[in-house]
């Protein structure tokens, strides 16, 4: 899940300084779970913007704001509101905001900051889980990601900085490498940590695209 947080209202109001009539677009997927782009969040945004002198030309919560064809259809259904709007506020992740931006000729402003790919630990608690390195090493690390869970993304084992098993950077967080070690020990796979591991960044030239039809991954 893409984890988002709300931007400060002042920042958004500054971004909207030239806008009068605003179309609000939420997202029914991740942003709804993060309480940054669901129905209730769109209504809250409506009240904030109206209290700050904006007119709300319309609003809808997209089924999935990162699906270009779907968003195109949803914007078509909202064409009257879109026609009356001089700006869109996107209550989704950065991907959704860009998808919207591709479809319209008016400015699209993000209501959220896009934080990370993470898991829902429990309601309202999110934890970063993957940094999209494109070269998954979880098979050798007991399904605990050193790229994400180690603050230094160390590839070959722990640094000397842990204190009583906790990270020098985030003292509340257990050292990822100690957790990895304990896990592979339980799995009988300690030997899997022995090989030299070096990340290849040559495969990660942004922006990456993948085409399932012709089987190519442009990186």
């Amino acid at each position: 899940m893409i984890i988002t947080t709300k931007k400060p209202v002042e920042e958004l109001l500054n971004d909207l300084r030239d806008a009068k009539n605003v179309l609000l677009v939420g997202c029914g997927e991740c942003a709804t779970v993060c309480k940054t782009g669901g129905e209730a969040d769109v209504e809250e945004m409506r009240a904030i913007l109206e209290a700050n002198g904006k007119t709300i030309a319309g609003s809808f919560v997209s089924e999935t704001c990162c699906n270009a064809l779907l968003v195109k259809k949803e914007l078509k259904n909202a064409k009257d509101a879109l026609g009356a709007a001089d700006a869109i506020v996107s209550l989704s992740c950065g991907d959704g905001t860009q998808t919207l931006g591709d479809q319209v000729e008016i400015p699209v402003y993000p209501a959220n900051n896009t934080m990370f790919l993470g898991e829902v630990v429990r309601q309202g608690i999110f934890k970063e889980a993957c940094r999209f390195c494109g070269d998954c090493v979880l098979a050798n690390t007991g399904a605990i990601c050193p790229v994400t869970q180690c603050a230094k993304s160390l590839a070959n084992g722990p640094c000397g900085g842990s204190k009583e098993g906790h990270c020098e950077v985030n003292p509340e967080t257990p050292c990822a490498w100690i957790e990895i070690y304990e896990k592979v020990k339980k799995l009988g796979q300690v030997d899997r940590l022995a090989a030299l591991s070096t990340k290849a960044h040559g495969e990660n030239v942004f922006p990456r695209t993948i085409n399932l039809k012709d089987g190519t991954a442009k990186v």
Binding site: L154, G157, T198
Partner: peptide, 10 residues
Amino acid sequence: MPVFDLDSVG
């Protein structure tokens, strides 16, 4: 920016 492209072993 924390680089950490290579660790001590690297």
